[in-house]
Every structure is written in structure tokens, then in C-alpha cells.
Amino acid sequence: MKEIFAGAGGASPAPAALAAKVRTLAPSMTRSMQRVAEAVAGDPAGCAALTVTGLAELTGTSEATVVRTARLLGYPGYRDLRLALAGLAAQQQSGRAPSVTADIAVDDPIADVVAKLAYDEQQTLADTAAGLDTAQLGAAVTALAAARRIDIYGIGASSLVGQDLAQKLLRIGLIAHAHGDPHLAITNAVQLRAKDVAIAITHSGSTGDVIEPLRVAFEHGATTIAITGRPDGPVSQYADHILTTSTARESELRPAAMSSRTSQLLVVDCLFVGVAQRTYESAAPALSASYEALAHRHSPRSTGR
């Protein structure tokens, strides 16, 4: 299983990735750590000016909690977090990192709904790109490009994302199947071996119907990949590679499935393009053949008109 947090031997996240880290990891933090995370995300300039003691007093926590929060967010210590906060504050002041907009209200005009959703989608994509571990992405692409067979597991909205990835891989000549039925997923996972790849898509990181087939695939020797918004969730136990997604704030009119789907599709597109690059000599002709077949099917002659 990969190392989850950048602070454990990796480089500290860039300022642009700090807000994404907070949004991604806050739900899995203790309440006291959440207060620290919410404070630094809400007022990076103000918190950057505080000592560790000052931030502890502001959030009603302890200095140890502040330091633990900094490390969980990927920084070796509080000093490094303060530097990132100062950088994030500078970006916001320059207009390159706008503050988060308000939630959608029941009485919002449709034009405001469009604007708010568009902003949140853009922010989710930016957060996911900033927090995506490109080394893990590259390793996942390598495994997929050489795979004998690829199984993809997802339930609900994640199932739709899995289907999208499967049909993309099929169009470049790879053998890929998406499974939304947990029983079929496990039945197929039993058949996987080394050289095969299994992908689990679960925003929560704890969807049992997705984790179980991934576990089976892992134990049968397949390379396993998790696309998840909770890199510390149970799914990580059976993942050789973890690709972390971000999500906008959940609200009554904006469930997590909406924004998680957006970030998952970005990761799926990154995987597909990476695999297509690695297998270009075979992928390009396969894509051309599929385009030609589809064009022929929809031409007037093929429909008898």
C-alpha cells in the first residue's frame, strides 16, 4: 500500500494544494483537528501570522493538536504549514485563488445556481489536479498499459465513472470491464491473476461492495488501484496505488456524489490519456477503427435512408 500523506517522507504540498488537502482530509479528522483545519482554510492570512500557541488558543485546541494537524496535511511541522498559509494568502489576494462561494440556496435564481455550480466544479478539478500524486498515477498507467485484463468496481455514481473508463480503454484495444453488481464483481475478481489490474472507485473509501472485490483481486495477485476521496479509508488496505480525488462542500442541494463524480472523471481521463500515450502504436489505429465504425453506423447508407 502506498504512503498516504506527503509528510511521511515526501515533499510538502504546494500552497495551492493546501485547501484541497483540508477539504479532502477534514471529514476523517478528529473534531479538534477539524477546528484547526477549518481555521487555516478559512483565514490563511490570519493564521499565517499566528504562532503555534496562538493558533491553538484561537481554535480552542492544544499545540500538539496543531502540530498533528500540520503533519496530517503533509507538512513536517507547523513552521512549514505557516509558510504554505502565507503563500495561499498571497495567491488569494492576487485573485489566483478565489475564496469559496456560498452554498446553493433554495431560492437562488437559476443564473446563480449555474454560477455556483460552475465555480465548485472548477475548484474541485483544480483541487484534484493539485493533490494528485503523479508518481502513483504514472505507476497506475504503467500497470494498465501492460494489463492482460482490467476489472473496474463502482457502485451508484461511481459505477457510471467506471463504465466511462471501461469504454475508453476498450476503444484503444484493451480488455476492460466495469462491474456495478457486487456479486458479479467478486465472481470476476476471483479470476484475476498477476498481470491483471483491478480498479476500485469509491469516494468514501469505505464502500463494502467495492472494497470486497478489490480485496479478492489483491489476494489473487492482481495489481490494484483505488480512486478515492479518503486515502486513509479501508479501501487503501488493498490498493497498490492510491489516486486521491477532491470534492466540494456537501450541502442539501449539492450531494457529495455530484462533485466526487467530477473529480473521479478527471482522474479517469488522466489514466486513459496516459495509457493511450504508452500504447500509442496500437491505440491510435484502434481509435481510428472505432471512429470509422461509429461513423459508418450513423451514416444515411447504413440506416437504409
Score class of each variant (00 low, 15 high):
88 L>D: 00
150 I>S: 12
143 A>S: 15
140 A>C: 11
206 S>G: 10
95 G>S: 03
69 T>M: 09
22 V>K: 01
180 G>W: 04
300 P>A: 07
252 E>A: 11
183 H>N: 12
242 I>R: 00
8 A>D: 11
222 A>T: 11
222 A>W: 03
140 A>Y: 01
132 L>M: 06
138 G>M: 10
208 G>D: 09
232 D>M: 04
61 T>L: 00
305 R>D: 11
208 G>Q: 15
44 P>D: 08
121 E>Y: 14
90 A>M: 02
187 T>I: 14
187 T>L: 13
280 Y>L: 14
106 V>R: 14
300 P>K: 10
248 A>G: 14
230 R>I: 07
84 A>N: 06
60 G>Q: 09
305 R>N: 14
116 K>H: 08
240 D>W: 06
47 C>L: 13
19 A>F: 15
16 A>V: 13
131 G>E: 07
157 A>K: 11
140 A>D: 07
112 D>G: 00
262 T>C: 10
283 A>F: 07
41 A>S: 14
155 I>P: 00
147 A>F: 00
258 M>F: 15
276 A>L: 07
181 D>C: 09
239 A>C: 06
267 V>T: 05
260 S>P: 04
22 V>I: 11
298 H>L: 14
71 R>V: 08
38 E>M: 14
11 A>W: 03
250 E>C: 08
44 P>K: 10
244 T>Q: 11
6 A>Y: 02
114 V>W: 03
218 F>K: 05
26 A>C: 15
180 G>N: 04
63 E>P: 01
275 V>N: 02
86 A>D: 05
29 M>D: 08
118 A>N: 14
171 R>I: 01
144 L>I: 15
28 S>Y: 04
201 I>M: 08
112 D>I: 03
114 V>F: 12
5 F>E: 13
297 R>K: 13
86 A>Y: 05
225 I>H: 02
34 Q>R: 15
217 A>M: 03
263 S>N: 00
281 E>V: 04
137 L>K: 02
70 A>P: 03
20 A>Q: 06
5 F>A: 10
196 D>A: 09
167 Q>D: 10
91 Q>S: 11
296 H>V: 14
